[in-house]
Design a protein around this nucleic acid. Structure first.
Lengths: 215, 215
DNA sequence: ATCAATCATACAAGCGTTCGTTTGATCGAC
DNA sequence: GTCGATCAAACGAACGCTTGTATGATTGAT
């Protein structure tokens, strides 16, 4: 009896949205509005996937959050899995770019790792448009997508691996394990982080690297 | 919805005699089989929940793995959520006992943390009977169980918090954050660990603490 | 008038769950 | 020892509902 409360969800025929109402609305050109709905769907899907998981999020949930009906989703995406792949890929691309931008110009290897951690936390914990999804999606229901998802994730993990490679670590430290534990701590953060915490995302990232640094 | 058929539901719980059966109640021939099926169901459910997640695992999956039909599950458990709570609680109890046993007699605070990490890894990564589930259960579909699950988890986190409290850390280190990152790295391991790796679970736990130790 | 975008509706499959029934073992009374 | 009675345990077929997806009609801007 886990029925949700999505019973009487009659869509209000308000149609209050008049294009003329907002002067700052995008021009009816084709440059920015092209694929706008698609991005909007991705944004809502990312939020829902991130908080409920893939299976617990329904197409109708995503559609309702976007303001359309379930069937209309299929004009923009071929399947639910396609939405996930798009969202996952965009999130990975976003966090990769954020980290690359953050470490640019930083020289010291440990400072670079710290900058990467801060950027990662800001992206993952901050109110990002398209939250990254790095949850354990070995989930068997996404088995068919696993190769695709791993490929998307590998791009980011390579960046981190390079950062770890440059560190001056004791010779008995397994760098692969170091990277996995570092990413594990980062990826676990969305589980416990609440925006009202006394520590900002940047503080959290900084402290993480601070604890790993040789003292 | 609420049909009037409030017929007497078959009571699934054991509770034959008084709940607290005395030790003398044990029959010499059939004591071991009491609740055996229930444990078997929990074992299969734990494996499936751990690999596919809660929503992607169906009652029929669990039943098939146990060798019975879907409906028969409900003789032993009242609901799918009940199975999860039982499995989660048993897993938490198991890992808590394993960690407590591992740190017993160890004096040095860092050695105690290392022993705890090793025990945690052995329990979580080893082929345990009832795998622990410490995945991100902020999942909204388990919202109603959240308090129960958090209570079960808190027992274990308190043990870890005490271990961290005893460490001699620099004054600027946030111990709460230290604990969360430590647990994050541990909890993320099932995501990437494969038993054929060159490192044993114990190696992994040892290296994790080794990397955190002041050098 | 065109056409991209959305609606409205439908469908088959699968979900958790229920329930009447069946089975095989145990047990007290005869 | 035999025989009903009882019980735990499982079966198998449904139920009501939700899911992802498909499709024809409709809309509104160009």
């Amino acid at each position: 009896m886990t029925t949700t409360s999505t019973k009487g969800q009659r869509l209000p025929q308000t149609s209050k949205r008049s294009a003329k109402a907002a002067a700052s609305d995008k021009r009816p050109d084709e440059d920015a509005s092209a694929g706008a709905r698609r991005r909007q769907i991705m944004q809502e899907a990312a939020r829902l996937f991130g908080t409920r998981g893939f299976e617990a999020t329904t197409i109708r949930d995503i559609a309702a959050a976007t303001g359309i009906l379930g069937g209309s989703i299929y004009y923009h995406f071929a399947s639910k899995e396609d939405i996930f792949v798009a969202v996952h890929g965009a999130g990975m691309e976003k966090i990769t770019q954020a980290v690359l931008a953050a470490i640019e110009g930083v020289e010291d290897p440990w400072d670079r790792l710290e900058a990467a951690a801060v950027a990662h936390c800001n992206d993952l914990l901050g109110s990002s448009e398209v939250p990254v999804i790095v949850s354990p999606y070995y989930s068997e229901s996404l088995k068919g997508l696993r190769e695709t998802l791993v490929a998307q994730r590998d791009r980011y993990e390579t960046v981190v691996a390079d950062l770890v490679e440059a560190l001056d670590l004791p010779p008995d430290v397994d760098r692969s394990l170091f990277r996995l534990n570092f990413l594990g701590a980062l990826n676990w953060m969305p589980t416990w982080y609440r925006p009202s915490a006394r520590l900002s995302p940047a503080d959290i990232g900084r402290q993480l690297v601070q604890g790993l640094r040789p003292r």
